[in-house]
Design a protein around this nucleic acid. Structure first.
Lengths: 209, 209
DNA sequence: TGCAAATGCTACACACAAGTCTCAGTTATG
DNA sequence: CATAACTGAGACTTGTGTGTAGCATTTGCA
């Protein structure tokens, strides 16, 4: 399940290096998608050679990164119970989780998708989960939009914009937590944008459980 | 007003080359933001050396490109009469114009903004125009969102997503023109997303005039 | 028509990131 | 503790994009 899933398991410190590199790459690449491996190595506190040791190439590192993000999405979809919970509750919970897991930057996702195919680097499981969620929202009459592709293109866009919004924006209100306010804004905006006929309902299930 | 605004004016064919390069750069860079100057030159039907002759550096070319886009925005804001027309009509018209002028790809705009400052490469005039539009929308009660920054971050995001939407999406309906359908979808979505209390009103002024 | 300007083409210099290799020193783990 | 794994540091090759220069040719313009 790790980056390379090599034949023999890594030593503990090597595993730590891998994790630190991935974390640093996420942070650095979010700020500058064209950042050098050297800058990533610096941010991770390792030598550039070590990056090459843990990841056979830059491409491999990027793929590992999107793998991590995919796992986070999958984890979020699972925790939000998109298949069973009331759709609006699932959407709200999922949105909270996405902000908690800091899946704000779309730039990283666009790094692996080569310019030609323009394919979404989201795994089939993730897209299936999102499709299910929005289909259920539609069946419940919470949204009117019919195209699930449009639904989560818009959803991801709003998540991204809400993540980039400066912390002092009046849109975030005076609520306590920062991520909570962003999630709330995203939830309301998406539901309204996709044609919620009624004013957005409060979720009926657990909030920050 | 041209790319370099040199001391002496260019010959007619040189001016044409400049235009062709800019057009090619827009198309190629929209597909792949990391595209080579050589690929741009090929797409423009000129030699790479000519690109260097018309634009002193890659950076200069990118700046010229954003200049062009800024002009288009400015032109759109002017034609939409954002200062005088009824706000919803102005929004609708502006949206139409943005799609007609193919200002769909945000990738190009993000090319000039260096990763550090994260500044919007939109000119102050453009941002001022957009701010005015959304403030008027708010004052007219068409939207409830209070932060203009949030308003046009979301607006641009929706424009971008609508531009990327595949042509056969059910969201685009069976309307005649492609750009019209996208503009319509964008208009409705944005108005709803920003808290239009009522179902989005039809614009009261000229449509595709 | 004649001249200056613009272009295509080729060759070259330069910078820089990716990737490989070696070796000495450090750290985990049986 | 002894071995094997991991790391940092440095040197090195390679590939590639950018930018410059020269020269023959074409083209706009007066």
């Amino acid at each position: 399940m790790s980056a390379d899933a090599g034949p023999r398991r890594l030593r503990a410190d090597a595993e730590r290096s891998t994790a630190r590199i991935l974390a640093a790459a996420e942070e650095v690449l979010a700020a500058d998608p064209a950042a050098t491996l050297e800058r990533i190595a610096d941010a991770a506190g390792v030598a550039r050679a070590t990056v090459h040791r843990r990841f056979s190439s830059r491409k491999a590192l990027l793929e590992a990164l999107t793998g991590v993000l995919n796992e986070r999405y999958l984890c979020g979809l699972d925790q939000a119970r998109v298949a069973t919970a009331p759709p609006v509750a699932a959407l709200y919970r999922l949105t909270e989780l996405l902000f908690e897991l800091k899946v704000g930057s779309r730039a990283i996702m666009e790094l692996t998708a080569d310019p030609a195919t323009q394919m979404t680097p989201l795994s089939p499981e993730v897209t299936a989960g999102l499709e299910l969620l929005f289909r259920r929202l539609h069946e419940a009459g919470e949204i009117t939009a019919t195209d699930t592709a449009w639904c989560f293109a818009l959803y991801l866009a709003v998540v991204h914009e809400a993540a980039q919004l400066p912390a002092n924006s009046p849109m975030l209100g005076t609520e306590a937590g920062d991520v909570g306010a962003r999630a709330d804004l995203t939830y309301r905006t998406v539901l309204a944008a996709l044609g919620g006929g009624r004013p957005p309902a409060e979720p009926r299930a657990g909030r920050t459980a």
